[in-house]
Write a protein that binds this DNA or RNA. Structure first.
Lengths: 355, 355
DNA sequence: TTGTATGCGTTATCAT
DNA sequence: ATGATAACGCATACAA
């Protein structure tokens, strides 16, 4: 492995000049630069990233620290998000490191290590909790980070989020307008901000319509197909079962549809079912699943871009983006009691009404 | 941020002594060590990983480079593998970096960069191709790496693999013994070694039974639910449709079952269907999917351990492990024409017979 | 048991 | 336009 010193020796130049030529500094003659570049290629010279990183004081690395792995299993979302991030980071010459992916280590500990040892220049957090320890720690340290999903303060750090509240609000209102009165929501652990956000939209729509929320219709085992099925069975056992079921994820909805069938009910006819995320499987269910789509790959790219900007010293205040998911109307949201087709109003005005 | 020099100054000791005390060297008095450790904690000293890495000449990092992302989407396999690797690496103080996760960059280019710039100490490769460029490159460079999935030479590098050939061989033989004669395999791109390996087992079983392989029964669009469904529709349109369908993945099998139903056939009765991997969804299909289970999380852990050993200079020859997946007999492998229950012989002897 | 001095491979500063 | 030298923050060979 030839290093800079060796390369400079062979060229009869100083390391300084060679380094400058290679890094595209202006103050080096075209002729010299050409010589240097050619020789570097011939000898297969590649700078040692470890040395460069120490010198420039940057690790050229962005860390990704999830809160929990459970929601990721079987979820294409995960691969898509990583692919998006990986793409943007690769372009910038940065590495993507994953930390805290297993349950036996506190995600906070993983964060601490990344920050304290300067292993990364910025961090991307996914699926934050309310009062997330990772967020509090990074805020305290003043370390650059961006979250996918905002928290209730929303003004303390950079974030990117899909407007789950608005989507759920619009959906619930549309269901009510179509005649539904018993609307269930198979959500998940409310500590997740994105879950709380969606539940909020659901509740606002009910309140707006003057429907008293029935706590029995809100469930929290929605992070798996199995959970969706179990929750649905429980809902069907109610004295007054729901006519519509909102789900925190598509897999949840798939489980819900399975349980409905098992109970002799036809999803998309006897009961309306709606998922979230639009995983590939969603188009292939029977009936095809109506759901919301968020461009996850692009979100990953954008998160990486923001992380890079923050690492370069940009102000976090500049990076707060609320993306609107699109409703994908397929078959499962239908209901024989409906007064007409489902008509979602995703406009900001409609969302504001309920606030 | 206090560094080693500052810490030493405050203690009235040399950097050397402080460094040794912190790194657990024996030749430092207990009293001194205690003082050093206490002060380090008080001042919140944490060594700078970049500096340490440059000094010791190791990046303390392992890279993971997939061949393609397509097979990962919607596959819990991916998250599980990463979680396993992340766990073992975290314990060792190593970082896990992901590279080449997007389609617009050649995985080989990602490998090159990791190696040439010394960004990682070892690499884990998943789902290798036959004559995989990544493998050839790393072999050429003499760079430490381990693959999940072996290639046809099998003796050139460290690997860990599930014995897909043997599993498929045993399954196909058992199906034949049960009376099946038209057995289809919805495989995938044969450039993937694990696909070719499984197809080999399938063919061996047919040959062993004297059944001429029908090329129409071997399909290659199995990397998605949709592909599984499409392949099945094509198979059903055959003059002589299959009575059993092997699938490269569970999602494929789910698609196959969907297409069977759409054609008025009942999987697990009219046609036997078997998946691979045992994703959570597999237990929740109707009928529940019979499949093979590989402990992916542990495989991830083991891959990381091997990578760490190789990075530390261990000989690759010591790391060749063939794991046997377990057959999970649920409902979908049944067939009304069967002469009896399916009886798999996964013993090495049974696998050897056909060789 | 502790300290001195050197090196890791770059980039950056300051001359020339 | 080019070069000598310092600095990045640590670990380690060698000395004491």
């Amino acid at each position: 492995m030839v290093d800079l010193k060796e390369l400079a020796r062979r060229l009869g130049l100083s390391m300084t000049t060679v380094s400058r030529a290679l890094n595209g500094y202006p103050d080096v003659s075209a002729k010299t630069r050409e010589r240097v570049v050619r020789m570097a290629r011939e000898l297969g010279y590649t700078p040692n990233a470890l040395a460069r990183r120490l010198t420039v004081g940057r690790s050229e690395t962005v860390g990704f620290v999830p809160q929990a792995m459970e929601p990721y299993f079987g979820n294409p979302y995960f691969a898509d998000l990583l692919a998006g991030m990986g793409e943007a980071l690769y372009r910038a010459g940065f590495d993507l490191v994953l930390a805290g992916l297993h349950d036996d280590v506190d995600p906070l500990a993983a964060c601490r290590r990344l920050v304290a040892e300067r292993r990364v220049d910025a961090i991307v957090l996914d699926r934050t909790y309310e009062d997330d320890p990772r967020v509090e720690y990074l805020l305290l340290r003043g370390f650059p980070f961006v979250t996918l999903g905002r928290d209730r303060w929303a003004q303390r750090h950079a974030w990117l989020d899909s407007d789950g509240r608005r989507a759920t609000l619009a959906l619930t209102r549309a269901l009510i307008a179509a005649g539904h009165r018993r609307i269930a929501f198979i959500a998940a652990d409310m500590r997740f901000n994105f879950v709380a956000d969606r539940v909020e939209g659901y509740r606002e729509a009910l309140a707006w319509a003057g429907i008293a929320p029935d706590p029995l219709l809100l469930r929290h085992e929605g992070f798996s197909e199995r959970g969706g099925a179990a929750a649905t069975s429980a809902l069907l056992a109610l004295a007054a079962p729901p006519t519509a079921i909102l789900c925190i994820e598509d897999l949840t909805a798939i489980g819900a549809m399975r349980a409905l069938r098992a109970a002799g009910l036809e999803p998309g006819r006897d009961v309306a079912v709606v998922g979230y995320n639009d995983i590939p499987l969603a188009a292939a269910t029977e009936p095809p699943l109506s759901t919301f789509r968020m461009p996850v790959r692009e979100a990953g790219r954008r998160l990486a871009e923001v992380a890079l900007a923050l690492a370069a010293g940009a102000d976090a205040a500049a990076f707060r983006e609320l993306w609107m998911p699109r409703f994908i109307a397929r078959g499962s949201h239908h209901w024989r009691g409906a007064r007409g087709p489902l008509n979602l109003d995703l406009s900001p005005e409609a969302a504001g009404v309920a606030r």
